[in-house]
Nucleic acid binder design. Sequence first.
DNA 1: AGAAATGTTTCCGTAACGTGGAAAAATGTC
DNA 2: GACATTTTTCCACGTTACGGAAACATTTCT
Lengths: 289, 289
Amino acid sequence: MGTDGRMVDTEFTPRRRGRPASTSPEGGSEVQSLDRAIALLRVLAEADGMSLSDIARTAELPASTVHRLLATLQKRQLVNHDAENGLWTVGLGLFRIGAAYLRIRKLPDIGRPVIRRLLHETDETVNLTMFDGNELVVVGQAEGHSSVRAFFRLGLRLPLHASAAGKCVLAAASPAFRGGLLAQVRYEAFAARTHRTERALMDDVTLTAERGYAVDDEEHTTGMRAVAAAIFNEWREPIGAVSVSGPAVRLTDDRLERLGRRVVAAADQMTRLYSGADETLPPEFATYR
Amino acid sequence: MGTDGRMVDTEFTPRRRGRPASTSPEGGSEVQSLDRAIALLRVLAEADGMSLSDIARTAELPASTVHRLLATLQKRQLVNHDAENGLWTVGLGLFRIGAAYLRIRKLPDIGRPVIRRLLHETDETVNLTMFDGNELVVVGQAEGHSSVRAFFRLGLRLPLHASAAGKCVLAAASPAFRGGLLAQVRYEAFAARTHRTERALMDDVTLTAERGYAVDDEEHTTGMRAVAAAIFNEWREPIGAVSVSGPAVRLTDDRLERLGRRVVAAADQMTRLYSGADETLPPEFATYR
DNA sequence: AGAAATGTTTCCGTAACGTGGAAAAATGTC
DNA sequence: GACATTTTTCCACGTTACGGAAACATTTCT
């Protein structure tokens, strides 16, 4: 309403296009061979070394079919085949791909309930961002009133120097790491109040470190304010941030302060969930930590 | 030679059967659709959220084909499809399967060079075992002289009360955990000298804890002796053991002592490699720890 | 030793199944 | 409102996967 629109589309802003998925009661197209191969992987993942005929029996498929599928999987390193005893096991290639899940989805999946609660308590848009390269990527969100619809859409990349999320990550980073990040900042001007010098940015970051949360006072988009707090991994390295944002007219100074404390609490909770011993997640996560 | 054979085949002893794999110069049968699906997973694992058309362009496949494959992968949870913005990401199912790799293959893969060195230094059969349920499973080995060929083959399960590996794991376990394990021991008699009572076993375990390594003096197989030391994870919980075994006539008391010290050193090294900061392994492993 | 049993790999005729172009459906952009 | 994009469904075609059977090996039984 107050803001005059999309002058600041830093990067592409992907949004649902094309024909929507059928409200499929269920099923649809499926590829038999792929479906069977996945079934084989499931079988293999539960055993530590199986012979071809064991696998074929368990999966209830003819041996020749299983052999063909396993050979393909082996060529791509998704399964190992011990040449000496002929046993098949899950392969490193599968692990490499599977490991990507943690990098990409762990925080969003864990953070969802926290974000949603924050939305209901504050009635403002909540964003979850993850550090990637030298920017922050929006990986989760919960939008408030439909009136001011999502400025920060999933996949959008936020600059370090012109976003609350970026500044709180800078404030939380180790001095050495922060130095490396600052060296790459371009100080692009997104709005009238965007920091234009390292000096100004660092003063803000120092304040942020003392305060515990960062404030974006119309620095990214004119008319928009936001507060953010950093989320950490198990070695207390910042990996992302939670932020609450809304039109400046609604986010007055004293409300900003209350939101700041609330955001810090939410970020702390996510840190504990991310690096710690909590449930709501499948047991596979317990293996790491 | 001295031993009179396979009276103690606790469990199945899988060994290479059937027609051996072709010394394939390369390739062979392969399944196109599966091969393409794997390529898609690789693409997805490198990006954090892609649209269908992006994926199709990257993989150089028609959109309809990609869609069909993704739909199948999604049904099995190997990929996620965000209904709101239509982005595809790697799924939890993929992680669940990939995580099995660590459970099954991490120690064997890491331990291989250590095992091989131990073989060359001692000239006796070396075995790597992992704790599973209430037994130890042979997951890696290096065989000495072909004369006394592998008694403990890959996949063989060793009992806790009648193997050097089992006893050193018992000795290294926490009192509470050890209690739970002991309650399940059946005291099956594998050889004349097998421990038959918890009393006798615990006396041996106490001695093992003091000594640092376990000794199997013809308790599993008459005529065979072995020494073993435990391998630990990052929380100092025993996860397996390395052992050196051979005919009693070759493994005299004083040689056993020297081998014991050597086995402890090897186990320590594997503990460091397994739980620590070493390379020789792809970067994915670094994510955990 | 030889024979029988078990397990793996290759072969190949058959048709089922995956393929991909095109159309339909929906949204963003001009 | 027309045009450009993107996703999803559809469908005729023939490539591709299927699986029985044979060939090949190794272990076990007699």
